[in-house]
Design a protein around this nucleic acid. Structure first.
Length: 645
RNA sequence: GCCGUUGUAGCUCAGGGGUAGAGCACUUCCUUGGUAAGGAAGAGGUCAAGGGUUCAAAUCCCUUCAAUGGCUCCA
């Protein structure tokens, strides 16, 4: 029998008979290893452990801890779910059942039967029962005809549709117990590895993600090889819920919604408004230093402007319906750019004026579908950290880079490090439809964007067919506490609207020339950004933007007067402070201040009153000891200066 | 917009065809206490809204509204 060479991740080379499987190789290394591995990666491809290896290969053995180990594990769990479901509801039809970042789902058609929470418990129990049988996952290669035959017999139209799109010779079935599924694999050795099971929720999901198709029932679940890991995961979910900006926003009195005002229309309470003011102050200062000029524009405009901008035909459904005045339709603005273009056009421009940078915290209204609304993250009224930069082609790269540098600077101030820059490109096949038909401009601007990203050494991913209709863009993707993905900020190239609005400047040769436009919103909208920050800081805003910075805690009524004196001094120094003058014990006052996430507490008793000091306790418990009021003011200012640096 | 779930006090939630409940928060009083909950009393609700069934509806049914988990969408 011929032999093959297996290269392990540490570089060791093992010589084994051709056809040996990964499990045997693991066993030859150690029994312990063989027990914990659940799949193998052969020449970069994940396969099951009992697949014979037939050529010289690299091999890594995957455990639960490995990312690919987890996805294999969860994919197998989806099959276990399907097996349980089929045994409980014979005749159920199956869509797809993949693994996801946290667990798996399976889309099923129960023919009108609705699943309840109790049903999930029953299915879970069935899964437990089936898991204990330690049924093996068996792979079988089938011809297309056989595959079609099997699912025709079974009467599953979804699987038939999938099979019809596959090439003959490349189709495999996997079976465990009495259940067989169309699947390319791989799977864990047997169901017994799945020890802890939780079905999380039920949702509707369109077949193949198309809302024209039938809506199937999607069940989400997660499994673990150990019960303790499931408990840990569930605990983590609970913790994440506490950090949800909708919960914190209510607790901390940042914002509210009201039925009479309307869905997606947040009300900013005084503390929320205070945060916004500090944020704007910071943004305006930063933008001023970066050469932006502030402009202001109305909340509505005539239909003709949105026809000109090209927005209306594409985005009418996302705008509030028009109001008619004197036979003319007016729209609430959904974006600021057309107004800014009109500001650009209002005065003649020379190349000497460029780049022109117009900034406005403009309020926009978007008619988001009801199902899309999500706390502050997805709303219908929003105020954007918007600006438009008009520049020459020669200036573009530098301007684009400056905008990117601004992002990085902001993210440093806010300590935002978990994000992905997504470079969205056009799809050449959709020129003239989804995208402006200007192939050479697309190429040119996309190359420029890539060059800036590469030279700045910024990690990014490129995605096809995600650009704006007027040019490529960079989106900064972040995740909410409960794991939902959002675009936080955006930086877009626009080579179309200058033409549409007939924007030009006079170049050195006294000719009219079109500017390039950049749309940018590094601090997103107030709504989304503060929603994000609430979660990012878990409600503990840094001192500089905290709506209430200092709380004075007199130990008893006797020190009330002195406390008020201190309060007035702090207020005069622009420090946002308040007194807790309730007749409660100090411990209680501290606890309440902690729950309200107040950054600094001043404890004031006999000692402090006697020597004109305050005793400073930071949120979380750090004791900074006693200091004079003047020293405390200096401390606050130094702290803020450092945070904004 | 679609599928599912939910809607009871400011908040978190229990209850459930026959006079509406708890804890926390709030108000008042007692207490004047030094680093995460001192004590007592009180006030607070058209049980989301509208309709239906019933002697009787917060409870059962229908509709609407809103929230929520997803799907679709996201300039």
């Amino acid at each position: 029998m011929s032999e093959i060479k297996i290269t392990l991740p540490d570089g060791t080379i093992k010589t084994v008979p051709k056809g040996t499987d990964a499990y045997s190789i693991a066993k030859s290394i150690s029994e312990g290893l063989a027990r914990v591995i659940i799949a193998a990666k052969v020449n970069g491809k994940v396969v099951e452990l009992n697949r014979p290896i037939t050529e010289d290969s690299t091999l890594s053995l995957l455990k639960w801890e490995d990312k690919e180990g987890k996805s294999t594990f969860w994919h197998s769990s989806a099959h276990l779910f399907a097996e349980a479901l089929e045994s409980l509801y014979p005749g159920v039809k199956f869509g797809i059942g993949p693994s996801i970042d946290n667990g798996f789902y399976y889309d099923v058609d129960l023919d009108g039967k609705k699943l309840s929470v109790e049903d999930l418990n029953t299915i879970e129990k069935k899964m437990q029962e089936l898991a204990k049988k330690e049924n093996q996952f068996n792979r079988k290669e089938v011809s297309k005809a056989e595959a079609l035959e099997y699912f025709t017999q079974k009467g599953d139209p979804y699987k038939l549709e999938l099979i019809n799109e596959l090439t003959d010779g490349d189709i495999t079935f996997y079976s465990q117990g009495d259940f067989t599924d169309l699947c390319k694999g791989p799977h864990i050795p047997h169901t017994g590895f799945i020890k802890a099971i939780k079905l999380l929720n039920i949702a509707g999901a369109y077949w193949r993600g198309d809302e024209k198709n039938k809506q199937l029932t999607r069940v989400y679940g997660i499994t673990f090889p150990k019960k303790s890991e499931l408990d840990e995961y569930l605990l983590m979910l609970e913790e994440a819920k506490k950090r949800d900006h909708r919960v914190l926003g209510k607790d901390l009195e940042i914002f509210a919604f009201d039925d009479d005002v309307g869905p997606g229309l947040p009300l900013w309470l005084p503390k929320g408004a205070a945060i916004i003011e500090k944020l704007e102050e910071f943004a305006k200062k930063t933008e001023k230093e970066a050469g932006y000029m502030r402009v202001k524009s109305p909340h509505i405009a005539k239909e003709s402007m949105y026809l000109k901008s090209g927005h209306l035909p594409y985005y009418k459904d996302s705008m509030f319906p028009p109001m008619e005045l004197d036979g003319i339709n007016y729209y609430l603005k959904a974006m600021n750019c057309p107004h800014h273009h009109k500001i650009f056009a209002a005065t003649p421009k020379s190349y000497r004026d460029l780049p022109v940078r117009y900034a406005e915290y403009g309020t926009c209204y978007r008619y988001e579908q009801t199902g899309e609304l999500f706390g502050l993250m997805r709303v219908r009224s929003l105020q954007m950290n918007d600006a438009h930069i008009y520049c020459t082609k020669a200036q573009f790269e530098q301007e684009f880079k400056a905008v990117n540098d601004l992002y990085v600077k902001y993210f440093k101030v806010f300590g935002i490090d978990k994000y992905v820059m997504r470079f969205s490109k056009h799809d050449p096949k959709k020129l003239g439809q989804k995208y402006i038909d200007a192939p050479e401009m697309w190429k040119e601007t996309e190359d420029m964007v890539r060059k800036v990203l590469q030279s700045a050494n910024i990690p990014y991913i490129e995605v096809e067919d995600e650009a704006a209709f007027y040019g490529p863009k960079i989106d900064i993707q972040i995740w909410s506490a409960i794991g939902r993905e959002f675009t936080l900020a955006t930086n877009q190239v626009d080579f179309a609207q200058a033409e549409r609005f007939d924007l030009y400047f006079i170049n050195e040769k006294s000719e009219k020339e079109r500017p390039l436009i950049l749309h940018r919103a590094p601090l997103s909208t107030h709504e989304r950004f503060i929603g994000f920050l609430l979660e990012h800081y878990a409600g503990k805003f840094p001192l500089w933007m905290s709506p209430e910075q200092v709380i004075l805690l007199p130990i008893s009524e006797k020190y009330q007067e002195y406390s008020e004196k201190v309060l007035n001094i702090l207020k005069k120094h622009d420090i946002r402070a308040l007194i807790d003058d309730r007749s409660e014990k100090t411990g209680k006052k501290i606890r309440d201040a902690e729950l309200k996430k107040l950054p600094l507490m001043l404890i004031i008793g006999e000692k402090e009153q006697g020597d004109n000091t305050v005793t400073v306790r930071k949120q979380g418990g750090e004791d900074l000891g006693a200091m004079t009021v003047e020293a405390f003011i200096n401390y606050v200012n130094a702290e803020i200066a450092q945070q904004l640096n």
